[in-house]
């Protein structure tokens, strides 16, 4: 565990070594606030809950999470430090885990900074705070799945821009796979794939959390997404680290 924590600490501090972290957090909060209040009709709905907030959160994450993960491996490749890191006495899995945990911790900070929404809704009414807590747990798990996807994309290339674009595309596929546009098209042409697409959707799972329902299958599904993409990340490194 020692090397994992060392990598995690270095990477986490790395976010704050440049203004990138602050820029990211501000943009995240502004975007999330704007969408919740204007498009989400937070006040007009006249209901004490955070449904509009959670409705937009995964989509903001689709766009911003790959920005958190794009540098994880691409930058190591560009600088050549990947050779330094991967010749230290730690396994590739430990390096992958440490970087993922750093990105997850950073995302946790960003998500926790949305606490004024919780305060606002508690001042204005009496919301179901259990459902809100479940929504936050779901957000963290969905963010984790996106982060693992983004990290794997970063291991593909030495260009952060390419890592970002592929990352957004990959996250979008898993977010949007249960959209009527997608499933209607598939059920007309390939019914079997439509069922699979609906099952794969992260958003459908996330909706359960937002309603305040924490189901074991949803937690297991999101956790296995994280494990799967971290494994992909490790394998990509194994095969392409010296390219």
């Amino acid at each position: 565990m020692g090397p994992v924590l060392a990598v995690m600490r270095r990477e986490f501090a790395g976010y704050f070594a440049t203004p990138v972290a602050w820029v990211f957090i501000v943009i995240f909060l502004v975007l999330q606030g704007t969408l919740t209040f204007s498009l989400g009709g937070f006040f007009e709905r006249d209901q004490a809950d955070l449904i509009p907030f959670f409705q937009f959160l995964p989509w903001v994450l689709v766009l911003l999470v790959p920005a958190i993960t794009m540098r994880l491996w691409a930058e190591e490749r560009r600088l050549g430090t990947i050779e330094l890191l991967l010749t230290l006495p730690l396994s590739q899995g430990q390096a992958v885990g440490g970087k993922f945990l750093a990105a997850w911790a950073f995302t946790l900070v960003a998500i926790l900074l949305t606490f004024p929404f919780v305060i606002t809704v508690n001042v204005l009414g009496s919301p179901d705070n259990g459902a809100i807590a479940a929504g936050y747990l779901g957000s963290l798990l969905v963010a984790g799945a996106f982060l693992a996807m983004g990290a794997a994309c970063s291991a593909l290339t030495k260009s952060q821009v390419i890592a970002f674009v592929i990352g957004v595309a990959l996250c979008f596929v898993f977010a949007a796979s249960a959209f009527p546009v997608v499933t209607d098209f598939l059920s007309h042409n390939l019914p079997l794939l439509a069922t699979i697409a609906r099952k794969l959707s992260l958003i459908d799972r996330f909706q359960n959390f937002v309603r305040g329902v924490i189901r074991l299958p949803d937690v297991v599904y999101l956790a296995s997404q994280i494990v799967f993409w971290l494994t992909v990340n490790t394998l990509l490194l194994e095969h392409k680290k010296a390219d």
């Binding site: 270095r10 790395g14 070594a17 440049t18 600088l79 050549g80 430090t81 990947i82 050779e83 330094l84």
Partner: peptide, 9 residues
């Protein structure tokens, strides 16, 4: 390693 790669920041 070749070129002594380091973390610049």
């Amino acid at each position: 390693p070749e070129g002594a790669p380091l973390y610049p920041e």
